[in-house]
């Protein structure tokens, strides 16, 4: 009962339709190298939406750590490598794996896991500094992950 309530709140909160095929964070199938073959939603990713997720502080904010020449976002960071040409270096399944849980591809990486909801130390309620209440939402939704992967797939040199 409680679970349904939380799931419902999540649905209303994000305003997105979660289809029956959506793979939840705990059910993601990842191979031993950290790749995820299957789409998390079955719905093709939208590269333009992915670019937005990568640039926005309130969403993925990937440019906090990565430089991407094709994105106009100001103040791109250099904690991680430039993502220019990422699609020449990685296949779609590998990119999906990196964005969902980079630590399975790069052990001990500082890159956050964007599709993971458990195993944290003192998880907070977003950026309030207070303890999280109830089940955690992943940092990005399944469809946002697919959108980001679709955008990354355009980064060829």
């Amino acid at each position: 009962m409680k679970r349904t309530a939380i799931a419902l709140a999540a649905l209303i909160g994000s305003g997105t339709f979660v289809s029956a095929e959506t793979v939840t964070p705990d059910n993601v199938v990842m191979d031993e190298y950290g790749s995820i073959e299957a789409s998390l939603t079955g719905v093709a990713g939208d590269p333009a939406a992915g670019a937005e997720v990568m640039s926005s502080r309130g969403l993925g904010n990937c440019v906090a750590c990565h430089q991407v020449s094709a994105l106009s976002a100001a103040f791109q960071g250099n904690v991680g490598p430039s993502l220019d040409g990422a699609a020449d270096r990685w296949e779609e399944a590998q990119l999906r794996g990196i964005v969902s849980n980079a630590k399975m591809t790069f052990p001990d990486s500082v890159m956050p896991s964007f599709y993971k909801t458990s195993g944290f130390i003192r998880p907070g309620n977003a950026f309030t500094g207070k303890a999280a209440e109830g089940a955690l939402e992943p940092l990005l939704t399944a469809q946002q992950i697919e959108d980001v992967v679709a955008y990354l797939a355009t980064l060829k040199e």
Binding site: F75, G77, N78, V79, V110, P112, S113, F120, I121, R122, P123, G124, A132, L136, L139
Partner: peptide, 18 residues
């Protein structure tokens, strides 16, 4: 936290980065 970052991740591993 949910971003799984330690003080060292930012101030030791990445000092001088942006």
């Amino acid at each position: 936290g949910q971003l799984e970052l330690s003080c060292a991740n930012c101030h030791e591993d990445n000092a001088d980065n942006y």
